[in-house]
Design a protein around this nucleic acid. Structure first.
Lengths: 204, 204
DNA sequence: ACCAGAATTCAAACGTGCTGAATAAATCCC
DNA sequence: GGGATTTATTCAGCACGTTTGAATTCTGGT
């Protein structure tokens, strides 16, 4: 189909990078839907199966090249370090500062280049792999996955109701207030699951 | 493909409504991605092209069907009645049964087609007025609004990560597991805000 | 020099959402 | 009534994303 002489090519033709560059252009020009795997492969002068081979899926390719890694693996892992008591605070800190652009402002989320659909795709991949995956790994233990999943829905809900589909009540909070209001929920999500004890009642 | 004699059928088979009902079940059972147009069509004993014909697209079908879910979930305030200790459980119950239950679809299906965008708008309005508004009113006190806002982000995150933009980890839970996993977070959101006491540490 | 593995092309298949053409009934208009 | 139009349906098929298996060729380690 490409008639480019079968087999591994000589040297180190940075094919993966070439695909990524082309893909970025195509995504920006035509959007997620408009850009096709076959089209990207053609533009990169490569067989389309190579995209699955190198990136796994169109979504993963999109997530990688549009790396607005909502926090970035580094930032999030950094938040993991430390005691469990402060974990919720550190994560909320990382999330708000990533989305409200202290330093490295994640591009395009407030409008611009990406549509809702694209953002949701990236966010989904991010929550699933970065948050659920890494956090469960960090927490360890039998209930790690349950705790990480709960944390992901709280964090996802925060991003959703504050940035993606903002509720007035959530959007109007200062980032400090938002953190303070949400911290108990995230802390509870992260807490080890204890068999419910009868005296562990909630205050009046 | 269905060998059901071509052309318009006799009488007035309420095909459109039948498709909508089946689609709702399928979407709730398998999520947006998991439910397929062909599967819905097969379950409704109809050719799959009819879905495009009647609804325009899978997304529009989803939007139309899910709007009803949002509106149907307005019976939430019934969950407010009762003691504070069980409030989180009752709310999660109401939410999951509204989104997964088998309440008959109210009439009025034939109307404007809605996309995901519109679903988000409806959901936003719902969370803001129904959850934040009424819940704050129910809770009362100075921190009522903060608690209701926290609850809205947890509930919104739940709907978001389970139904709207489903994460595998969240979608794959049974509704019982989902409730159990999320209950601590919602309970914490609803709890009165106490001035942080130094011994109020989180377990191990 | 050898061999395991990585990188690539190719062909074929599968299930997806969707469209265009054909067809048949219902409805409208004179 | 009867022709024209609209509406509801089936069917055949497209382009897509993805997977698989095989064939091929190069790289890296020993």
């Amino acid at each position: 189909m490409l008639n480019k002489s079968r087999g591994r090519p000589r040297g180190r033709p940075r094919t993966r990078e070439r695909i990524a560059e082309v893909a970025r252009q195509e995504f920006l020009e035509h959007g997620y839907r408009g850009a096709t795997v076959r089209g990207i492969a053609a533009a990169a002068e490569v067989d389309s199966a190579l995209i699955s081979y190198h990136f796994g899926s169109k979504e993963a390719l999109f997530g990688e090249v549009m790396e607005l890694q909502c926090i970035g693996a580094r930032g999030l892992s950094a938040a993991f370090e430390g005691d469990l008591a402060g974990l919720a605070d550190r994560i909320l800190d990382a999330v708000t500062s990533a989305w409200e652009g202290d330093a490295a402002a994640p591009p395009g989320l407030d409008g611009a280049a990406m549509g809702r659909e694209e953002v949701m795709i990236v966010l989904r991949g991010y929550l699933e792999s970065e948050v659920v995956g890494r956090l469960a790994e960090f927490l360890g233990g039998t209930d790690a996955r349950a705790r990480a999943t709960a944390a992901a829905t709280v964090i996802g809900g925060f991003i959703f109701t504050r940035y993606l589909n903002p509720l007035p009540s959530v959007q109007s909070l200062s980032s400090g207030e938002a953190r303070a209001i949400l911290e108990p929920s995230l802390r509870a999500a992260l807490a080890p699951r204890v068999p419910r004890r009868p005296y562990a009642r909630m205050g009046a």
